[in-house]
Design a binder for these strands. Structure first.
Lengths: 224, 224
DNA sequence: AATAATATTTAGTTATGACTAAACATATTT
DNA sequence: AAATATGTTTAGTCATAACTAAATATTATT
């Protein structure tokens, strides 16, 4: 009846992949988690027995209501820890994901509350991702993928992926940081690049990389 | 080749029991850790194969040099976390042991360093236990068990056990806290009690409980 | 629709670290 | 020294969660 660390990791992973497409396939989950597909099948059966996921062989998984709550609880802990590590222990934003992956499974509710308080009840982690509320709610902000922003339009960096330290280091070096203003100067569909302006610097980024960056645009689409 | 959480717990437990008597018996270890003796036997064999303990069937275990280093590393992490939880997250001294038991296995070297720095390179945890140095050294202070302090003598509370929350709550209520001055007013061998003076209050404590409390006495044995 | 390619599941194995029951060793009484 | 009590180890089991190899489904291609 007890939920293990592995259970929490599966739920969190399904949650992340689920936001992209509704049902998550065994293989996608296996790739994302770095385990074999056969292992995933076995685990999904267990999670289904515990009513944490709804699993149909060959057709994929979705989280149940309770599974989603648990995933969000873990995600909340993860993001609070990331922010804590940056703000109070001075780690860089590319280091914190790996550490938080370990911490998130051992933090008690009481300590989570204390950390939340210490941080001033924050709404976002260092990568701009929203922190779910204590009762498992998550409000999704209205954002666009950077590669879909039109030439000439501008906006604010909202969120970047937290998993890949190298990518984060690259983003940091180029000021592609949540909160910063960004303007798309030129989009080359052939060359698969995007020329952007951030703060006072110009920079060219690959369209594939730009996919991973979420931008917030005002209602007037940032024309000015 | 990797050391598991369980390995760290065994080494830490052996270290603690070893300070009392040289060799640690299977049963004592089992009682202390809350597992069955048969499980201990199995684990000791594994630890011996890894050269972390020196184990002779029916005769007990001792830590090897490397096993001791690892035990002290874990103990260091444990104690730093306890202090961190008290000083920065405002937990009480009776709550922190249980939490630290979980944290100690997931803290990376880098984070341990940061916490150490944040705390100002402390030498003692909230219960007065010395924090081993980063290279695995521990200096043992010259202390006496409270039940062995003579009538009329005084000293300073040095260290109390950190495991039992109830006992810690009791000690806290009666100001039996490391750093406080203590004077033994009356010792009743028949009644198995000790009448003591702490700060401005008088209190009577059982001799059995007093055994667990370590007191530092000046060279003149606290007569004045 | 038949074939090929890809995705997924099943069956059986492994390691970790707990457990019980039974066997065996050591200590303590009488 | 024999009998009893206590301590310890052996043998075999269980749950968790990974793995490989083989079997089976599904999807895509011709």
């Amino acid at each position: 009846m007890k939920n293990t660390e592995s259970t929490e990791n599966y739920l969190k992973s399904i949650f992340k992949l689920q936001t992209v497409d509704k049902k998550v396939s065994t293989t996608d989950l296996a790739d994302y988690m770095g385990v074999r597909a056969a292992s995933v099948t076995g685990m999904l059966k267990k999670l289904a027995r515990k009513k944490l996921v709804s699993y149909q062989p060959y057709k994929g998984v979705t989280l149940t209501h309770i599974g989603r709550k648990l995933a969000l609880k873990t995600l909340r802990t993860h993001r609070l820890i990331e922010l804590f590590l940056v703000e109070h222990l001075g780690l860089s934003w590319e280091e914190v994901h790996g550490e938080a992956e370990k911490w998130e499974h051992v933090i008690s509710g009481k300590i989570e509350e204390r950390i939340d308080k210490l941080l001033g009840y924050p709404l976002h982690d260092p990568h701009g991702s929203p922190i779910p509320s204590a009762n498992g709610e998550l409000k999704i902000k209205d954002t666009v993928r950077l590669d879909r922003v039109q030439e000439g339009e501008s906006g604010t960096i909202e969120e970047v992926p937290d998993e890949d330290p190298e990518f984060l280091a690259y983003l940091g070096e180029n000021d592609i940081i949540p909160g910063n203003k960004i303007k798309v100067l030129e989009k080359s569909v052939v060359g698969k690049t995007l020329k952007i302006q951030i703060t006072s610097k110009k920079h060219t980024i690959g369209l594939k990389a730009a996919e991973k960056i979420r931008v917030h645009q005002p209602k007037d689409k940032g024309r000015k």
